[in-house]
């Protein structure tokens, strides 16, 4: 990851000096980035250490903590429900991320076209998906995909097709969840890209057009490469976000993730273990497993995006 970060952005030429004088010289930089680390030390570090401590204990949340060594981790590794939710999480990530980021790019690109009319209104309308209350969204998606009386099944019935059990079927339910994610976050990512597109000078496009490049060529040869830092941002954030996917399955399927836990994601599993089953020690172990998975997976994605 060092390589990736070592971009050629140093304004100040660095001379060989002792480390301490180098640090002293850059004290202003440290000052400017310090608020995050100070807040983290006060509010973030203790919860992390606490959950690490908990992961080696058994604790119902109110009673005494009992030291159990690695028992929680051993339980986790042999627990089918845990691995099941790992699989579910990755499956939903896979079917949601790529369409979502692709649609977002297209929308942002279109919204960034010069002389586009109603730009502000379009922007706002794409954005409403992200502020529509999740309670309403759950009711709506349920109404659309219900097993018996859903809108989709209603339309299918018009063509003589039998109702499809969208929420009971372990494969289809993942697509329903993915569609919820795509629906909620495409506009959000489009707005990130739109902000990113603003950093690309219009003159570059004009020059390319004069050289005879069509829209598709400018998109792939100018827009995408120059947008790379922002794309990297969205890929990492989407990865972290989908690995922590929680709200969608909870509101659509409930705390146990639907029939056979087919919609149980890692975050929902952890929440369920902690706040429904009162297994705080185990839930902490799950959270550390989740943390490691997210870390590794983000690293892979980072390397991947850097390459293309």
């Amino acid at each position: 990851m060092k390589e990736a970060l070592g971009t050629n952005t140093n304004v100040l030429p660095v001379k060989k000096r002792s480390l301490w004088s180098e640090i002293w010289k850059n004290r202003v930089s440290y000052l400017f980035i310090s608020p995050f680390y100070i807040l983290f030390l006060i509010f973030g570090l203790f919860p992390i250490l606490f959950s690490l401590y908990l992961a080696f204990h058994s604790w119902t949340g109110l009673g005494e903590m009992k030291f159990v060594g690695l028992a929680q981790f051993k339980y986790l590794l042999t627990e089918p429900d845990f691995w099941h939710s790992v699989g579910n999480t990755f499956a939903i990530w896979f079917i949601s991320t790529i369409p979502m980021l692709f649609f977002a790019l297209v929308i942002a690109f279109l919204l960034n076209l010069p002389l586009l009319k109603f730009r502000g209104i379009y922007r706002t309308l794409f954005f409403v998906t992200n502020v529509t209350s999740i309670v309403a969204v759950a009711i709506i998606f349920q109404s659309i995909f219900n097993n018996n009386y859903g809108l989709v099944n209603y339309f299918l019935s018009l063509f003589g097709v039998d109702p499809v059990k969208w929420l009971d079927n372990s494969v289809l339910v993942k697509f329903v969840l993915a569609s919820m994610v795509v629906w909620r976050f495409t506009g959000y990512n489009a707005i990130i890209y739109l902000a990113g597109l603003q950093s690309i000078p219009q003159t570059l496009y004009e020059a390319a057009t004069i050289d005879g490049a069509n829209r598709r060529q400018t998109f792939f040869h100018i827009t995408i490469p120059l947008l790379r830092p922002v794309i990297l941002f969205t890929v990492i954030m989407t990865t972290i976000g989908s690995m922590q996917l929680f709200t969608e399955p909870q509101v659509l399927l409930g705390d146990s993730g639907g029939v056979g836990g087919a919609g149980m994601t890692l975050s929902l599993y952890m929440y369920n273990q902690a706040f429904i089953q009162s297994q705080f020690g185990y839930a902490s172990a799950v959270s550390w497993a989740l943390f490691i998975i997210i870390g590794l997976f983000s690293l892979i994605n980072w390397k991947f995006v850097q390459r293309f």
């Binding site: 009971d168 146990s256 029939v259 056979g260 836990g261 429904i276 089953q277 009162s278």
Partner: peptide, 21 residues
């Protein structure tokens, strides 16, 4: 009992599997 909810959810989930799949 303290763990009623946990245990009952196990039975419920299995019954759901019987009924739905």
């Amino acid at each position: 009992g303290e763990h009623y909810v946990t245990i009952n959810s196990i039975f419920q989930d299995e019954l759901k599997l019987v009924e739905r799949s």
